[in-house]
Nucleic acid binder design. Structure first.
Lengths: 227, 227
DNA sequence: CCCTAACGTGTACGGCGTACACTCGTCAAG
DNA sequence: CTTGACGAGTGTACGCCGTACACGTTAGGG
């Protein structure tokens, strides 16, 4: 009789792709911390060890998730100068990362790049050399761009104070005493953007500001290099 | 009789400082992965839960370890212009990070800065404002420097291929086919520095190259800002 | 029709962070 | 000298984690 109870799930079989997409989805909705092999398996209605038939281990799962994100980045434009092309592509990468907030953290934790990431870097190098950069300069520039190349910066205070805990005035006072320069900066910045007291700075603006700072510097280096 | 067996360890009692220093030492010698509460306790000849009388939890332990590293950074020089002062201090931070290879990874994982880190940032801001930067420009510059401010860059392929696995020629061939631009760049770079085939690039040089690129850009922005 | 290979299962192990209740040594107050 | 409070270190236990390994099950090809 148990055969009759058999539910009509006709569950589509697992596959590497289904596993990766489910993992990305889980991380998108519940954060990277919620992503355990066991939890992911539960999400797929399957026993934990089933996953290991499709990914070798958790590290490979994370690599695969990164690949999913990197594949969302637009290909290079070929209808403009190197500077616009690089700028646009990096901003496309940033958009992909913003869609998957866990991704930058996970990327930081990886030690070796996957083929997909290698391809991305390869095409990035090509954008510079096609744009007339020497190999040497391209090399240094790639290092200088660092993680900015795939759309994120290491922010060092990259929390976002959750909006349900409002800033208490006495904390500000204490902060003013302990960290006068931070306090002064914070006060100035918050006054300027009247929109909301909370964030105080516009991440997208800061990213583009820093990116353009680098690109302008790079442009100058190229001019000096080529004579 | 068991009293007689009592060993003459007269072990110095735990303290927050002793715990933190032992943790730093363990991470220095065995890597961040080896640092578990249990392992650290064993290293101190103590039961795991004993640590919790001195640090609230593992996150606080990590925060404390970061503080130890940040406190090794030299204070700002006051005998030069802003640019040299900032440059020197950042290179001092880099030296501290190189002494503790785990530190950059751990910093990346932290969400909220400790008071010690806040102080560091505060003094960094002050270096710019004292140097004649407007508050606004200082703000953007701090964002642009990002993690470079405490001496590391997000490298994106930050593995170091361990030296005991030599590069096999057929791998290079395959790489040349799959990633022609990377291959070309790699070949050029390795030919230049004849010292060793392995690393291929000088991290310290790349760091300073990128840092100077930023500082030069910042200097120009300042000139434009101040008129 | 059976063999095989691929896919999913079940059980188990060793590690982790840490809650909670305890022992025991120290030291001040009575 | 006793006592009682306090704080450092202990012991046990819980619920997670990643994953090794042996076992079913099932679908497709000889």
């Amino acid at each position: 009789m148990s055969a009759e109870i058999e539910i009509q799930t006709t569950r589509t079989p697992l596959s590497r792709e289904r596993v990766l997409l489910a993992a990305v989805d889980l991380a998108d909705h519940e954060g990277a911390d919620a992503l355990s092999m066991r939890r992911l398996a539960a999400e797929l209605g399957v026993v934990p060890m089933a996953l290991y038939k499709h990914v070798a281990n958790k590290d490979e799962l994370l690599d695969g998730m990164i690949d999913v994100v990197v594949e969302e980045i637009d290909p290079p434009r070929t209808d403009t100068d190197w500077k616009s092309a690089v700028r646009d592509r990096i901003l496309s990468a940033r958009r992909a990362l913003l869609r998957h907030p866990w991704a930058s953290r996970v990327m930081e934790s990886r030690t070796r790049p996957t083929p997909t990431v290698m391809s991305y870097m390869d095409s990035m190098i090509q954008m510079f050399t096609d744009g007339g950069f020497s190999i040497d300069l391209t090399h240094h520039v790639m290092h200088a761009l660092g993680s900015r190349m795939i759309g994120f910066t290491q922010e060092l205070f990259n929390d976002q104070t959750d909006p349900d805990t409002p800033i208490r005035p006495e904390m500000l006072e204490a902060m003013g005493a302990a960290y006068p320069s931070i306090y002064r900066l914070w006060k100035t910045v918050s006054h300027e953007d009247e929109t909301i007291v909370g964030p105080g700075c516009d991440d997208q603006f800061e990213f583009e500001f820093a990116l353009d700072l680098m690109l302008d510097g790079i442009e100058r280096l190229k001019a000096a290099d080529a004579g």
